[in-house]
Design a protein around this nucleic acid. Structure first.
Length: 114
RNA sequence: AAGGUAAAUUGAGUAGUCGCUCCAGUUUUUGGAGAGGAAAGUCCGGACAUUCAGCCUAAUCUUAAUUGGCAAGGGUAGCGGGUAACUCCCGUCUAGAGUAAUCUAAGAGGUGCGAGCAGAGACGCUUCCUUCAGAAAUGAAGAAGCACCCUUUUGGGGUGAGCUCUAAUAGUAAUAUUAGAGGUGAAACGGCAAAAUCCUUACCUGAAUGCAAGGUCGUGUUCUAUUUUUGAAUAAAAUAUAGAAAGUGCCGCGCGAGGUUUUAAGUAAUUAAAACCCAAGAUAAAUGACUACUCACGACAAAAUCCGGCUUAUAGAUUUACCUUGAUA
RNA sequence: GCGGCCAUAGUUUAGUGGUAAAACACGGGUUUGUGGUACCUGGGUCUCGGGUUCGAUUCCCGGUGGCCGCC
């Protein structure tokens, strides 16, 4: 789990990023980014019913994404708001290492790494 | 040994590193706790909260509120019991399925069950009608009284089972068994009731909405209306009250119809007593990742007010009781 | 989370236990030199699985998919 200051919580922030954020994607992972005028990076995760109808699967991918960003939070450029979304995934690709790789690629594409 | 029936338990484990939620301490890292048998579907029933509550009667007065009754609405439907309550559970009767263990059932009465004819009376008979076969005539199918015997032909008679009533015995009761009587003897015996009730009967019951119920504190933003003051000409500022929009803190929120063990009552569901125990409480919402070892190589699936049921999903493992068949003694 | 509703032809709707209906659309045919119009005609697993019933789109139970409301 991420520390409190690195979480993206408020509804306003989400709608702002959805409307005017830059988006990048690789395979099944999509990212939306916007500058905030703070000294921290904030990450929000959006997993809808469309990903899977089962709560277990949705919870699991949320946890895995959080773990990925927790490891990398200090490597990401400061002062960004990020939303992460995931499309439907086949059972074979539903593995931690696979998701980690694709997230890594997306972050490079968006030029977010230090 | 094989096959079957009924039920119960479990739902990978151990060690380490980093990280999350809550609690306690302490003052900057220390200790403890952290998803399920279905947490699910939301199909029922409660607890709890808010709002509403017709008529009569008695209690000094008042009230839905205490007593007794009615109306309206809702529920239940073999019989008996359990429970806070239930469409649940237990026991039992009847009917049906099975060699059996056992399983299934919403199982009161009336009205009703396509149209017409005969008939006292039709859901059944016949005809129309529908479907199938056929070139057609026509035949078959469209729920439902039986078996046997005698006589003999479009019929007549007898016996049994079945039906109704009465009595005795057993049982709290539904009911069962035995005995007797009655008419019927084929067209009136009997079937369907899941329409979850149009009417009746008996019994039970305030109703509606649901924790996004509801309560409370403060902050600050925007808009609208009103009042007062300043001010002056339609504008600005301040104060107070009310409403709306957006966002948010706290309570509700987990010690409870609670668990575990023992004893007692009961065929059982369950109840009573004693001892011990405290076991998630989040709010963009906590359980993940990595490493090592073991095996059966891990199914279905994750709390969101709480509890009792029902229903549906579920890999594998373990246990108990019973039944049938076969073998041996 | 709590509560409610719906599913019938390609689309929009009827259908209160007894042969699945209408409009538009679509396919085929006739008329026409061709097209339109007009006329004739065709196509349903009544969302899926059980149950009650002689008989179910309709009644009951369960699943699947979709939609809506709530400080």
């Amino acid at each position: 789990m991420l520390p409190c200051e690195n979480r993206l919580i408020k509804k306003k922030d989400f709608t702002a990023i959805y409307s005017s954020g830059h988006s990048f994607s690789f395979k099944n992972v999509i990212i939306k980014v916007k500058n905030n005028n703070l000294k921290v990076t904030r990450v929000g995760i959006a997993i809808g019913l469309k990903f899977s109808k089962k709560a277990v699967k949705r919870n699991k991918i949320k946890r895995q994404l959080r773990e990925i960003f927790r490891k990398r939070i200090k490597q990401i450029k400061i002062g960004k708001d990020i939303i992460v979304m995931v499309k439907k995934i086949k059972a074979e690709e539903f593995i931690f290492s696979e998701i980690e790789k694709s997230v890594q690629k997306v972050l490079k594409e968006g030029n977010l790494m230090k």
